[in-house]
Nucleic acid binder design. Sequence first.
RNA 1: GGGCCCGUAGCUCAAUUGGAUAGAGCAUCAGCCUUCUAAGCUGAGGGUUACGCGUUCGAUUCGCGUCGGGCCUACCA
Length: 543
Amino acid sequence: MKEYLKEHVTSALATLCPGSDIIPSFEKPRNPEHGDLTTNIAMIAAKQAKTAPRQLAQQIIDTLQLDSTLVVKIEIAGPGFINFKFTDNVVRTSLQEILQQETNYGRHNLAHGKKTQVEFVSANPTGPLTVGHGRGAVYGDTISRLLEWTGHDVTREYYFNNAGRQMRILGDSVRLRYLQLLGDTLEFPEDYYQGEYIKDIAQTLLDEHGGKLRNEPAEGMFKQQAEKDIFADIKKTLKSIGVVHDVFSNENELYETGKVKEVIEELRAKELAYDLDGAVWFKATQFGSEKDKVIVKSTGEPTYRLPDIAYHREKIRRGFELIIDVLGADHVATYPDVLAGLTALGYDSSCVKVPIHQFVTIVQNGEVVKMSTRKANFVTLDELIAEVGSDVVRYFFIMRSIDSHLNFDLGLAKKQSDENPVYYLQYAHARIASIIRHAEGVGIDRNVPAELSLLNQPEEISLMKKLADFPDIVESCAATFEPHRLADYLHDVAGQFHKFYHFHKVVTEDIPLTAARMSLCLATKIVLANGFSILGISAPERM
RNA sequence: GGGCCCGUAGCUCAAUUGGAUAGAGCAUCAGCCUUCUAAGCUGAGGGUUACGCGUUCGAUUCGCGUCGGGCCUACCA
């Protein structure tokens, strides 16, 4: 319909205002009384046409020739909006589309298989995932699903640093715990990893190797075992909320394959890297940065920037046309250097998108719980999932814009999980399933063709209209990387359905009406289920 | 000091990316189950969108300034 109106309004405008190249845009009015679609074209074009907005709007309407079986009313409102109201047939047609397309309703192939990489979580394996990581995990995965629904070929990737100081300290933390288990009395530094899981890893090593590792360096067996055990743990946690990565990349590989060295040499060759005070500097100032950045420390050890740049170049070399890095707010400072690095190497960095999510604050008993992996005073993602379940965790993390700080009241989430908003959505789905079971129970034939024109009650019409919005919502959420709007939308759908359910009985003596309302129920169930699958939450048949 | 994000109902957050009367969920109050699931529905109260300028037909949204909160600002990641 949008395209249909766009075409007609554009040509009307061309007759009235030759030479104008303004393309009319249409949107759904917030207030349903303002019709089904509205355009502000008259207000925008008024200046060029040298006509008052409302007057121009009238001229446009007079010029338009629209199909009266589709458009029932056109009116001018407010400062010059043109409101179009469709016949109910239009929305009934979309109901049929939903029933036909079923699990594919809402899918687009807009991106035509565009090779896309979403890098997310990417927490270093130094301890269990925190609730903060959970937000990035759920967000990254939901974005991936949205992109798949809009025709992207998505690779989910996890990158971690296993070459730096963090991992050395991790290895040494395990080593010290191991020595303690062997009976040595020694001091355990404050800035080492304090968590119990370190002792568990040490115990594993003790069980397997006895005291033979006494003189083993921290970076050998200790670090390896820690990385292995902790990663197994991380993957298990992610899997429990439906997050599975396709590819794991790490920093070490970039050194071993010479990719890091290659970057330095190339930057040097381009005179974009230089030596100073024993360190190697990248001329970041040439790319908008305030100061140049160190890429190799005077100790000879690279900073994270260098492998990060090398890694991103590999992303491009691997053929990704759209590259998405999901970062937490604490990493905001890192990505401009990476983009600058890519530019310096001669790549167009505009294909790299970096959505940044704000922190999750855990509130327990009215107090803020500060999280630090090192100090081990965090609430783990695992604990949270165990308490409230995967659906609640996913929905809670996705229902809010990533720009806002998320307050997670742990007590509330645990205690009142029955009142969590996700149940409101799932309940609508379960309710429909129940109606279907009931209908089958009383011998309703699902194959009776429904006469949709029987659906004319206000609650039926507005529910149908809401359902018809789904494809647009999927598209815009994918385009803006804003999955929370899908959660909002589904909440609306559930709301419209609950209302319809309350006012109208589906299964009655009236066979044709029953068939029509069953169609509406089935369509609602499809939209909810499709939406849930994008959000990664279950669609229960009963609750 | 500089950069990024935020400030909307008592609380947690939305607002179709500049649209018309700023909306939901909790919480409070008043109603609705002999009928397909009451984890639901209906109604009421609750707002100077932190504050001040500006941009224009029109600002919660864009720009500048002030105040307040969070995160960055290393030869840590």
